[in-house]
């Protein structure tokens, strides 16, 4: 459950940047191939934010679908897992979208 330590980071980062103000909203961008489960972040958030300046903040998570590009023929393919196979038969797929895991912005009171 690495989401627990990652959610701790999210809360630390937000409260640190808030500089004593109350955090009312946190916006995350999480790719579907990032290895982070959005629901697990939501599950951990309330616990991690408890008794901090981010307690009660709304959590908005934008999910980015996975996309890859074949290293052999250059074709772009949708990816639901961090690997796949191109129409040309190649399994050398470079992930070009879906590995994002970042805190985009937040709102402070």
């Amino acid at each position: 459950m690495h989401e627990l330590s990652i959610t701790r980071e999210i809360v630390d980062l937000a409260t640190d940047k808030a500089g004593g103000r109350r955090v009312t909203r946190i916006a995350l961008v999480i790719g579907q191939l990032s290895g982070i489960v959005s629901d697990a972040i939501r599950f951990c958030f309330d616990v991690c934010a408890c008794s901090t300046a981010a307690e009660g903040a709304r959590l908005d998570i934008e999910e980015i679908p996975g996309r890859g590009r074949c290293r052999v023929c250059g074709l772009e393919v949708p990816l639901e897992q961090p690997f796949g196979q191109c129409e040309c038969g190649s399994v050398r797929i470079e992930v070009i979208a879906g590995e994002e895991m970042r805190m985009k912005e937040m709102e402070v009171a």
Partner: peptide
């Protein structure tokens, strides 16, 4: 551990609060 991104606090206040841009990698 964290790099300091340029979070510009806008001088004008909104009743709904201030949005702070972060663009920070979670790891």
């Amino acid at each position: 551990g964290h790099s300091h991104s340029h979070d510009h606090d806008h001088g004008h206040s909104h009743s709904h609060g201030t949005t702070v841009s972060l663009e920070e990698d979670l790891l």
